[in-house]
Nucleic acid binder design. Structure first.
Length: 417
RNA sequence: GGGGAGUUGCCGGAGCGGUCAAACGGGCCUGACUGUAAAUCAGGUGGCACUUGCCUACGGAGGUUCGAAUCCUCCACUCCCCA
């Protein structure tokens, strides 16, 4: 095994790889493909991008492919059933959104391509003659992703997906001398199809590598909230506060792996950090550092600072008065981190006001929560539903921080008065 | 085409004429303990009112009955077996 891979393995970035050349220079360029099935990346996409980043450090030219063509077909990998086709306009809009996000996100120069530019106008007969002829049906049928769908059904459309992706690899090999494709573990079948195609067409040796599907110590999938939602990179889909909290809440058991995978820090820095963390795990130092680094990277330093302030204030490690002292711009930012509910007046009984504003879905729900001691305003527990908002002194004249349990936060706004 | 089983709350799954807002398990929410961790324990989980009360709910529409998730009829859907 080529030893230039060792650091990457240490970072848990490699699950599987074809035999690789002795030096990274022999690879030339590497690509990762992302299908624009949504208008934002989520943190699962970051893993192969991290790998790409480290490969770039080794002198391999990084290429990111946005699958404007393949997203119109649908990748059967990892899916139990056929998926509805996305409208072409949606795919196009998504592709643009992803491209913009990638440009903002990646700290290194990379080549951005869209496979629509070569697949979009590929004539059917040409494709069947020049590409399809080189791959046998039995080869495709043997693929795990196809195999598992034979029972439940797979359309010809999805069946042909691996072939399209294989051609992408070939196209990039031709244009950029790209000899390596990376992807998530579920992409192995598609990647090897590309390798086989290139070998058939050119006799050249190319390579593939997959990243592990991250799991948490308890065996569940990493990258989803407890509710099962993805953690997205766009602030519209996942607020920066949520995003920060997601990292902060990772368990001790998972944090070393996460640092290795996601952090841009050097191995030495990570080891030092972990050592400090182990001396006093209750300080959650490693979680804090990672949460800050990730939030700053995705949402910017300023936002990262503001969500950090909120977190400290909310969880009691920071002084509540800090909110009063913040510059207006930062406070506005903080306001946007959580949902805002408007109450008609600061004198209506809390329970009623919070139901009207939509914070509680029903009076029963709110009453029960208050009875259990689960509602706090400005970090003070609410004793009963009859007291008005004005019992608590507002932040900046008209805002109150409402807290359901420990972690569910929102702002309530009442008219000045 | 023939025969059988089923459709219950967020999910799984009991209930088979009143005592059923519906056992039990999971999930979820809240609390205690804590490190915004893990584990554990406790309470809650249709709506309104809030001391016993009312309303809406057990695939849909009708019916029988003082009374139905429970019985009957029709309709819709799902699954299994045989051809």
């Amino acid at each position: 095994m080529a030893d230039w891979l060792q650091p990457l393995r240490k970072r848990h970035l490699i699950q599987d790889a074809t035999p690789l050349p002795e030096t990274p220079q022999a690879i030339g360029a590497a690509y990762v493909g992302i299908d624009p099935t949504a208008d934002s990346l989520h943190i699962g996409h970051l893993v192969p991008l991290q790998l790409l980043y480290h490969l770039a450090q080794l002198g391999i030219q990084p290429i990111v492919l946005v699958g404007g063509a393949t997203a119109r077909i649908g990748d059967p990998s990892g899916k139990k059933s056929e998926r509805p086709l996305l409208p072409a306009e949606v795919v196009e809009a998504n592709a643009q959104a992803l491209a913009a996000q990638l440009q903002k996100l990646l700290p290194f120069p990379f080549t951005l391509v869209d496979n629509f530019s070569w697949l979009g106008s590929f004539a059917l007969l040409d494709f069947l003659r020049d590409v399809g002829k080189h791959v046998t049906v039995s080869y495709l049928l043997a693929k795990e992703t196809i195999q598992s769908r034979l029972e439940s059904g797979i359309s010809f459309t999805e069946f042909s997906y691996p072939l399209l992706q294989a051609y992408d690899f070939y196209a990039l090999f031709r244009r950029y001398g790209c000899r390596l494709q990376i992807g998530g573990a579920d992409q192995w079948g598609n990647i090897t199809t590309g390798i086989a195609l290139i070998r058939k067409l050119t006799g050249e040796e190319v390579y593939g590598m997959t990243c592990p599907l991250l799991t948490k110590a308890d065996g569940t999938k990493f990258g989803k909230t407890e509710g099962g939602e993805n953690i997205w990179l766009s602030s519209e889909r996942t607020s920066p506060y949520r995003f920060y909290q997601f990292w902060l809440n990772q368990s001790d058991a998972d944090i070393p792996k996460l640092l290795y995978v996601f952090s841009w820090k050097s191995e030495v820095e990570i080891e030092e950090l972990l050592q400090k963390h182990e001396e006093a795990p209750e300080k959650r130092l490693a979680q804090r550092v990672l949460a800050y680094e990730m939030t700053a990277r995705i949402h910017g330093e300023e936002t990262a600072r503001s969500v950090q302030v909120v977190s400290e204030v909310v969880f009691g490690t920071g002084d509540f008065a800090q909110l009063e002292a913040l510059p207006e711009a930062l406070f506005q930012q903080i306001l946007r981190e959580m949902p805002l509910y408007k109450v008609p007046s600061r004198e209506v009984p809390l329970l009623e006001g919070l139901v009207q504003s939509g914070f509680f879905r029903s009076k029963s729900e709110g009453r029960q929560l208050i009875q259990q001691g689960g509602l706090a305003i400005n970090r003070q527990r609410v004793p009963g539903g009859e007291v008005p908002l004005s019992t608590f002194s507002p932040v900046r004249g008209r805002f109150w921080l409402v807290q359901r349990g420990k972690k569910h936060l929102a702002w309530v706004e009442a008219p000045e008065g």
